[in-house]
Structure formats: structure tokens, C-alpha cells
Computed example of a mutant assay.
Amino acid sequence: MQFLSYYDMCNLPEPEWLVEGLIQKRSTAVLFGKSNAFKSFLAIDIGLSVDTGQDWHGNEVSHGGVLFVATEGANGVGRLRIPGWYDHHRIEEENRRAFLYPKEIRLDVPDDVTALITRMKEDFFALVVIDIFGGSMAGSEIEDKTARAWVHGIQRILRETGASILTVAHTGWQDDTRARMHTHFWGSFDTRLKVEGDKEGMTATLTVERHKDADSTGSWGFRMVQSHGTLVAEMDADVKAKASAIKKKTGLSAGNRAALNALDDALAAHGIRKVGQDWPPCNVVSIDEWRKHAYLHSVEDDADTKRQAFYRARKELRDGGHIQVYDNHAWRCA
């Protein structure tokens, strides 16, 4: 067990960029957005820029091997999207070095993580792209136990291979300000990248929501163009991110935001539909189930303090119009 002295900690190395302004080396990033927002096409664009070493739309890239883990739609990814990107950018055959793992993977299972690390050490990989998040675990994406095992597995990959991890994820059912996952997953990423897409207009924006260890700024607009049987992202300065994507002001305290996220988790795990004029046209969940999820995420140790914090958050969220409660059940307001 090695401790760092004050001198050692002050001389820790500065973070290095894998893709300047976007993803750091030996870090984790999540690229999240709604369905049909062109997330997968942007993830391929980022990954293959690293693979070829060419600038990502003017941002300097550190060249290295890339592994795409396609947990769904692997045939289209391997047969059309990756070759189409190479063709569009006129990459010579000998410089097309990306790898594809065409199935689900269980990063919350230690033996599977060990197998992945062993295979990765046969080549040099600078980046692993996981698309999509829900297919990368044996357990449920809303369970605390699964989240802790998955995060531990990801940290092992970073530590033992030196690669970065880019995970593609959908936004929440009720909250498009965060990815659809347990809060322990959400809090573990070094970088969060939000994608907003316009399917009709064939445009997308990518915005840095947060870097843990760098300035959290940066937004890029893209036009999705048909090329070689797929869609390829081309930067377009006229495509602007929504102001809400650049800076989301919720007016919520950290405790109320945590309670709201816990409600999302409870709705995902235990949500049901109720029939009747007093019930909404969406899933609801019992207050008891919501409270259990809130306690899992609470930083308080004392049971009474947890209970008081939950009921305080419940009242403030209801008074603020964020939730509604009826007959000992709760749901998110539109």
C-alpha cells in the first residue's frame, strides 16, 4: 500500500487529452442523449478519429488502437458504419485498424473483465467504445450492486490497459438531463457529453456537460450526411446546441436532485400504470419504493436524518411542481 507525500501529490502529472477538449487519456466518458439523436454515429466518428490519428474536427487527437463493443446492431456497425466512415474519409486499407466485439459484454462480472483485459493486452488500445450501455452488464442498470461491480470493472480496465472508455447511453425516461442509469454509474464518469439530435433536420450537437479535471466547456454542431451507405458527421457552424444543453439551471438543491434521480430509479424498477381519472397517463411508484431508492443514495448515516431529508425533499419537489403524489404513490411531472 503506497501513500503519496505532499511533494508526491503536488507533482502528479497533468491530465493528457486523447481527443483535445473532449476525452482525456485513461478516463471514462459517457455520451448520452435521446433515441435517434445520432449518438452512435458520433461515437464512431470520435473512435475512428483516434484510430486513424486525424484531428477530430480541428481538435488534436492522440493516435491509438480502438475497440468498438457493439452490444446491439453489430452487423450494421461492422459491415456498414465503420467501413463507410473509412471510405468517406479516404482512409487506406492498411490504415483501417479498428476492432469490433460484436456482442453483449458483462463488465460487472470479474472473470469477463479479466478476459477482456487479457485480449486487449495483445494489442495497444487507446479507446474502448461501448454502445450501448445497457448491454454491458449482467445485472440491471438501476441496481446499486450492479453499478458498483461495473464501475470497479471499468476502473480495472483503465488501470491495467491504459485505455479510455467511451460509453453510449440513452437519457432517462423522465429526465433528459442525465443518462438512464443508477446514480452510482452517473457519478463515476470523468466526462459527460450530451447529444441533442434533430432527426428531421439531420443535425446533431455535442456539448460537454462536465469534465471532472478540466474546464467543462465546448459545443459542436454537425450535419449528418449520407455517404457510402451510412451517415457521417460533418461539422456545421450553423448548427447550434440548445441553451439548455449548454447550461441547465434546475433551481434544485443537491439533495432534491438526488431525490428526483432516486424517483427515476424507482420508477424504472417498480413503476406501474394505474387506471382511473385521478391517475396520470404514465408510470407511478409507491412512496415506500421511492424512499428505499433515496436511502441507497443518501450520504447520511443516521436513519432519522435520512427519513427527515427524504420527506423534506418530497415536499419541496411537490411544491415546486416537479412531482405529484396521490394515494401514497408518486410520479414525475411533465
Rank of each mutant, 00 (worst) to 15 (best):
S227H: 08
G78A: 14
A294I: 03
V109K: 09
E72I: 02
A204C: 03
Q2I: 09
T250V: 04
W17F: 03
V113I: 10
L12A: 06
D51C: 05
T230A: 09
L80H: 12
L100P: 09
K121W: 00
T205P: 13
N75M: 12
D8E: 14
H152W: 13
K34D: 15
F124H: 15
R257A: 07
G201C: 05
T305R: 15
N36E: 13
D108H: 00
G73D: 11
Q54G: 07
H184K: 10
E93F: 07
G21D: 12
Y326P: 01
I157W: 00
H228G: 08
K242W: 08
K306W: 05
V325G: 01
P280L: 05
N11S: 12
D176V: 06
I246E: 14
D176L: 04
D327R: 10
A269W: 06
G271T: 09
A269V: 12
S244Q: 15
D112A: 13
T171L: 09
T207A: 10
L42A: 01
E200K: 15
L267E: 04
K249H: 08
V50M: 10
D108R: 00
G218K: 08
I117H: 00
D123Q: 12
I82F: 04
T146C: 09
I91N: 01
S227E: 05
S227L: 07
M235W: 15
A169L: 06
G84L: 05
R223A: 13
G58E: 11
T177G: 12
K247D: 15
M202F: 12
E72N: 03
F125L: 03
Q24G: 06
A268N: 11
G65I: 06
V284L: 08
H88T: 13
G255K: 14
K242P: 15
Q226P: 12
Q155I: 01
A303P: 15
A204E: 01
Y101D: 09
K103A: 15
R307N: 10
S140P: 02
A334K: 11
E20C: 03
Y311P: 05
W186R: 14
A266G: 07
L22M: 07
N328H: 05
Q308A: 11
V299T: 11
I287V: 11
D112P: 01
G251L: 04
T250I: 03
Q54E: 12
T217P: 01
F41T: 14
W290K: 04
W17I: 02
A179G: 07
L107D: 11
L231H: 12
L22A: 00
G218P: 08
F189S: 06
T203H: 02
G218F: 10
W150V: 00
R332Q: 14
D51A: 15
A74G: 06
K103P: 00
G229I: 11
Q54P: 01
Y101Q: 13
C333D: 09
D8A: 13
T217V: 12
N328I: 00
R97N: 02
G162H: 03
G65T: 05
Q226W: 08
I105G: 01
S140K: 10
V128I: 11
